[in-house]
Simulated assay, not measured.
Amino acid sequence: MTKQSILVVDDHKEITELIYHYLVEFGFDVVTKNNPREVFAAVEQQKPDLVILDIMMPGMDGIEVCKELRKTSNLPILFLSSRKDDVDKVLALGVGGDDYITKPFSPRELVARVQAHLRRNSLLLPLVQQQPASLKFENMEIDPDTHIVTAYGNTINLSAKEFDLLFQLASYPNRLFNSEQLFEIIWGGDSLGDLRTVMVHLSTLRRKIEKDPANPAFISTIRGVGYKFIGQPQGQD
């Protein structure tokens, strides 16, 4: 069985070495980088299954790295930070991060988060592949084969989790999902995390797909109840 590969990026060598030993012990192949600008070549050459990325790095911080990666890649990105400020967490998730862990962290929590995201990705991929037909609505098309979303004729660049959320909601138009259900479906029922992650990802998703996020045409919030995709499916391929 092929080992899953993790790319760990932190400007502190002692941190990358510590995480390296944690993950290797659990059977992962691990590549470490201390220079954030080396990430892009490493992703291209090593093709990791997940990236662990520190936020505070000199020269190019983790937020900038994530933005660049999201232009070409949907692989899971797990942020590390020594800051517990919710603003940083919202920013990290808003640029396409899949999870956020504050330092100091326990080895078990880190490994559990990594395993949960890898497991979730492996489960979602075959599910998407089983549905070759695009989802078509007025002013929107969602292609699960290519992960390409078009809204109002424009191609929208979404992170993996943003796409998964949109695809889940659009697969069941006009059906309500609460935050707990969406968190369980997209992040995994046994994933360690915060339900605010759902809110942050949906807020970012709306900014990308809606002409007026304050008056959404695609994803509606029913206050105190949940979220639903608005629209009637059109003819499918």
Rank of each mutant, 00 (worst) to 15 (best):
V198M: 08
A214M: 12
S171N: 06
S171E: 03
S171G: 10
M199V: 13
T197H: 12
G188D: 04
L166F: 01
G189F: 03
L169K: 06
V200I: 15
N178A: 00
L166W: 02
T204P: 03
N157L: 11
D164V: 07
E210D: 10
I156P: 00
L165C: 00
Q168Y: 07
S203D: 15
R206N: 09
I186E: 11
A214K: 14
I156G: 00
S203Y: 13
E210T: 06
L166N: 02
E162H: 03
N178H: 08
I186V: 12
F177M: 04
H201Q: 13
F183I: 04
R175H: 14
N215V: 11
Q181E: 15
D194R: 06
N174W: 04
F167I: 01
K208N: 05
G193K: 06
I186N: 09
R206M: 13
G193Y: 03
N174K: 04
T204I: 02
E210F: 04
E180M: 11
R207S: 15
Q168C: 14
R206S: 13
S159R: 04
S191T: 10
K161D: 14
L195T: 10
L165M: 11
N157Q: 12
F167T: 00
R206D: 05
Q168L: 14
D190P: 01
N174H: 02
H201I: 11
M199Y: 10
N157G: 09
G188C: 04
G189C: 04
I186Q: 07
G193V: 07
R206P: 03
I185K: 10
N215H: 14
R175L: 09
P173M: 01
V200C: 06
N174L: 05
D212I: 11
V198F: 07
E180H: 14
S171T: 04
N215M: 10
S203A: 12
K208S: 08
E210W: 03
D190Y: 13
Q168H: 08
L176A: 03
N178Q: 07
T204F: 12
L176P: 11
L176K: 13
E162L: 01
K161R: 13
N215K: 15
K211Y: 05
P213K: 08
R206A: 13
R196I: 13
